[in-house]
């Protein structure tokens, strides 16, 4: 079991958002506070792991022609479970994520991992892959939320720390509202991917030498 290698791929070299460019919609839409990012990241990780396990267990039974429809049904089942659980136990997060929880069904990360990994590998490997890719996705969401929340509204840990208000770092009126607006999502993600490409370019240069 090559857990270390898969974890490294999920976090860096094959990061689902920054390198594979999957799951953009939710990444940009909900990352305006730490609680949103964490809630979404954990939900996706759980759904991704569970659906990877089931799909990999059923990979020999599902007929090739209708496999996408079958994957989508499995994923939709888990999404519904997570959606109901969130509404029951964490109504605040469920409210602020809104329509993006049911939309995890069409999050390309989950379908892409099902198609490219779980349908070809064993149950245990698929579960590990789900966890690693999920952690990679969560990490990007957390970084984006921290940047946007800090620059946009001047707080850290909104929705979690300090009774939900977050720790205030500078007064709210100095925050760049731009970053909390949709614009901020595009700009922040663009810069993060650029940073990733820069790092990759440097890595290649080093290897060349």
């Amino acid at each position: 079991m090559n857990f270390k290698k898969q974890l490294k791929e999920g976090l860096l070299t094959q990061n689902p958002v920054l390198v594979q460019l999957l799951g953009m919609c939710s990444t940009m839409a909900i990352t305006i506070s730490l609680s949103n990012g964490l809630g979404m990241g954990v939900s996706v990780t759980i759904i991704l792991t569970l659906s990877n396990i089931i799909i990999s267990a059923l990979r020999k039974i599902i007929p090739d022609k209708i496999r996408i429809a079958a994957y989508v049904v499995v994923i939709a089942g888990f999404v519904t479970m997570v959606d109901l659980l969130l509404q029951a136990f964490l109504p605040d997060i469920a409210n602020s994520l809104g329509v993006f929880i049911p939309l995890i069904v069409v999050n390309c990360i989950i379908l892409a991992r099902a198609e490219s990994f779980a349908s070809k590998n064993g149950v245990l490997a698929s579960a590990v892959d789900g966890i690693c890719q999920g952690i990679g996705y969560t990490l990007v969401l957390l970084v984006m939320s921290v940047i946007r929340e800090f620059l946009g509204s001047g707080t850290f840990g909104g929705g979690i720390l300090n009774g939900g208000a977050g720790i205030r770092i500078f007064p709210e009126e100095y925050g760049a509202l731009l970053l909390v607006l949709p614009v901020g999502g595009f700009l922040t993600l663009g810069c993060l991917i650029a940073l990733m490409q820069w790092a990759q370019g440097r890595g290649k240069k080093k290897e060349g030498k």
Binding site: F186, L187, L189, G190, A194
Partner: peptide
């Protein structure tokens, strides 16, 4: 990709 995202922004 990054420049496309900045444009979209």
């Amino acid at each position: 990709f990054p420049i496309a995202l900045i444009t979209a922004g």
